[in-house]
């Protein structure tokens, strides 16, 4: 890759971030100035929150179970079986729960949002909205944003809870670790700071998923090909952003919420 194309890529990325920022600011203006469409909001909570539960529960549950098993295999060698619960709980709250939920929601909800808005864009339905005096941000972006901001932290909590319950089951019933030790170390090392971190990450990842997906949808071009491309790009971009931003967010949040406090 030569310097020119590297420069073009960097400029394109900066422009993309700029467009996301404009969408974010327009959404804030809409929330502050236009009436919120509560009916659409409730419909979106059902669609993006309620209907995402199964995938999030299965992901969280099996991740917690397998993570408990793998941790046990290592910890058993040094006689630290009872620490398995604490490691699983802290990891679920701080990293696995929010990140895996973010990725699953990006796949399920982000793709659906981009496809729906993208289809509306290429079939002139968004122009129709505008021609009827309805701002697309008010009608399409705000209800989805508010719904995901409400739903995502709850989904993260659900995922973490199922992961921890699954690890308790695997640890105490399958691997035969003492239930009292398992749970007492878990409660001792995992606390409010870990839960706060999970919620904050859930909130941030919700913003990434919804703004990337809405941006892709609103900028869909080239008919059916564009509609096919929009959800794919929404999922890829939001997944990558979740993984990259999670890294920096972990460092930043660890200053505010150090492990074990």
């Amino acid at each position: 890759m030569n310097v020119q194309s590297l420069g073009r890529t960097a400029l394109g990325f900066i422009q993309y971030l700029g467009e996301l920022s404009v969408l974010f600011s327009e959404t804030c203006v809409s929330v502050a100035s236009a009436p919120i469409r509560w009916k659409l909001f409730v419909r979106q909570v059902l669609e993006v929150g309620f209907r995402s539960q199964l995938v999030v529960i299965v992901t969280g549950g099996f991740t917690g179970a397998v993570f408990a098993y793998q941790t046990y295999l290592q910890f058993h060698k040094v006689g630290m079986d009872s620490a398995v619960g604490a490691v699983v709980a802290v990891s679920m709250f701080r990293e696995l729960g929010p990140v895996l939920t973010g990725l699953m929601v990006a796949g399920r909800v982000g793709a659906a949002i981009a496809a729906e808005i993208g289809t509306m864009k290429v079939t002139e339905q968004i122009d129709a909205l505008r021609s009827l005096g309805v701002h697309p941000i008010d009608y399409l972006v705000v209800p989805r944003t508010l719904a995901l901001l409400l739903s995502m932290p709850l989904l993260v909590a659900e995922s973490c809870a199922l992961g921890i319950l699954a690890s308790i089951f695997v640890g105490t019933k399958v691997l035969d670790i003492s239930e009292a030790y398992f749970i007492s170390t878990m409660v001792k090392f995992a606390g409010g700071s870990d839960i706060s971190m999970a919620m904050i990450k859930g909130f941030v990842f919700a913003m990434i998923v919804v703004f990337v997906a809405c941006h892709q949808g609103l900028n869909t071009k080239n008919g059916a090909v564009g509609v096919g491309r929009a959800p794919t790009e929404a999922v890829v971009i939001s997944s990558l952003l979740i993984l990259v931003i999670n890294f920096f967010l972990s460092f930043a949040l660890n200053i505010i919420y150090p492990v074990g406090r």
Partner: peptide, 15 residues
């Protein structure tokens, strides 16, 4: 937009 309405080529109905 209250004064001027438009009929789109495809109808642009909300599907």
């Amino acid at each position: 937009r209250k004064k001027v309405g438009i009929l789109f080529q495809s109808g642009a109905l909300f599907d």
